[in-house]
Design a protein around this nucleic acid. Structure first.
Length: 415
RNA sequence: GUGGCCGUAGCUCAGUCAGGUAGAGCACCGGGUUGUGGUCCCGGGGGUCGCGGGUUCGAACCCCGUCGGCCACCCCA
């Protein structure tokens, strides 16, 4: 990180700037995400980056960490309380309700999310998520498809050592009975619990299960998966069977509960095992059949996920040294500069990645730049131009030949 | 929000313990090779040592504050 000079302006705490070539990886991640979303049949959903605070307060849950202390909330000039979105699911559901769409709907989104917290690697105040929502279906096949989506995304971005941690937290009716049990258990062990855990006994007892400070105590605690109703139980079994059909490995983690209130039944996280716990969760999702109602819509079953792009790129093995140009045009004779410019323009129109120097420089310097820019080839415009030829050099092998300018595209295809 | 470590050139860092007005490698630019990169050699540009204040004849170095980064907790993406 570069430090600011005197009056220099710097970015806000917990935000990042991403420049090339590092941003090449972001571009690639975005392309893979969009491509995957299209292959899976998810249409693009655009929603505002801020909402009326109420959308998240109600949607995410009043007693969640996110709403209690992480929201970027402010009052705008019209005296409305608005909040920078800490996640997108509540927004997408709000949008669906507002546009009056009902029935099956598959949508994908990509963009920045905001949570006010102490930054650390893989945990920023503005971070990026790509996610999909599968709305209007209570079928376990929808759960399986969404889980597969995230798994393939991580596969295509070459994230090693991914584990799918899977659990079911049941339906609200199952949870009422369960809540009484977990509360009683926690009360009985109250003296051994961390302070934070004790505070949660009344507000959100289930979340004590994944508190790292309380792993010992919680080992013997009752877990939601043992308290599923018949319907939720069957749903979960079908989801597991569906994953097996697709050869998607998973581990059932009966302590996995997620931090947002709207989930029911299936919940899961993708864990990058190469990392410590702090930022090993690179994505996660769950079923949220109750959210439409919470936000004032008609009850609609739904399942969705969010992938943490920042963390995924930290874990990804996608290399940086892929070629970023097909051709770098080297101008030998300044009198041919305009011709070279036109050649660059035509090649670009033909879909080829091309660049050249914007000022006169030595041939050596231009070749150096071609190399530094990770170009596949260098095309020399010099004396040979008068015979309607250019010299094209393969920068990896050093081989070069004389070809006509129109043959460049073909040369690239053949190499 | 709590606790700890750290901030010197674009990057990675040395110099801080024993105060005397800044260094290396890499990167960048130019030349050696007046039309050929990735190797080599030579040269060059670039820093009021994160910022502010204090102590001192003198501060990158000592003290205080502040901003930022990293790590753990918390929680999650």
């Amino acid at each position: 990180m570069t430090e600011p000079k005197r009056d220099q302006l710097v970015r806000p705490k917990g935000t990042i700037d991403v420049l090339a070539p590092e941003s090449d990886r972001w571009r690639m991640a975005h392309r893979i995400f969009e491509d995957l979303a299209e292959r899976f049949g998810y249409g693009l959903v655009l929603t505002p980056m801020f909402e009326h605070t109420e959308v998240f307060a109600r949607g995410v849950g009043q007693d969640t960490e996110v709403v209690e202390k992480q929201m970027y909330t402010f009052v705008d000039r019209g005296d409305r309380s608005v909040t920078l979105r800490p996640e997108a699911t509540a927004s997408v559901v709000r949008a669906l309700i507002q546009s009056g769409i009902s029935g099956r709907f598959k949508g994908a989104y990509w963009g920045p999310m905001f949570r006010y917290e102490r930054p650390q690697k893989g945990r920023m105040r503005q971070f990026y998520q790509g996610g999909v929502e599968y709305l209007g279906s209570e079928s376990p096949e929808a759960d399986v498809e969404v889980i597969e989506f995230g798994y393939r995304f991580l596969e295509e971005l070459r994230v090693p050592g991914v584990e799918v941690h899977l659990n079911s937290i049941g339906d609200p009716t199952d949870r009422a009975a369960y809540r009484a049990e977990i509360t009683a258990f926690l009360r009985a062990h109250e003296s051994d619990l961390s302070r934070d855990a004790r505070k949660r006994i009344d507000t959100n007892p289930m979340r004590v299960l994944d508190s790292k400070a309380d792993t010992e105590v919680v080992k013997a605690a009752p877990v939601p998966i043992d308290h599923l109703g018949a319907a939720a139980k069957e749903h979960f079994e079908t989801v597991k069977a569906g994953l097996e059909v697709l050869n998607i490995p998973y581990v059932v983690d009966d302590k996995l509960v997620r931090g947002l209130d709207y989930y029911n039944r299936t919940v899961w996280e993708y864990i990058a095992t190469q990392f410590d716990a702090a930022h090993s969760a690179v994505g996660g999702g769950g079923r949220y059949d109750g959210l439409f109602e919470i936000l004032g819509g008609t009850p609609t079953p739904a399942v969705g996920l969010a992938m943490g792009i920042d963390r995924i790129l930290l874990a990804s093995d996608i290399p940086l040294d892929v070629p970023s140009l097909d051709v770098f045009v080297v101008v030998v004779d300044e009198s041919l500069r305009s011709e070279a410019r036109l050649l660059v323009s035509e090649l670009r129109s033909g879909g080829i990645r091309v660049d050249m120097s914007d000022v006169q420089r030595s041939v050596k310097a231009q070749f150096k730049e071609a190399d530094r820019r990770r170009s596949i080839s260098a095309v020399v415009v010099g004396d040979e131009w008068n015979q309607d030829n250019v010299t094209i050099r393969d920068l990896a092998t050093g081989e070069q030949s004389l070809i006509g300018p129109k043959e460049i595209a073909q040369w690239l295809k053949n190499r």
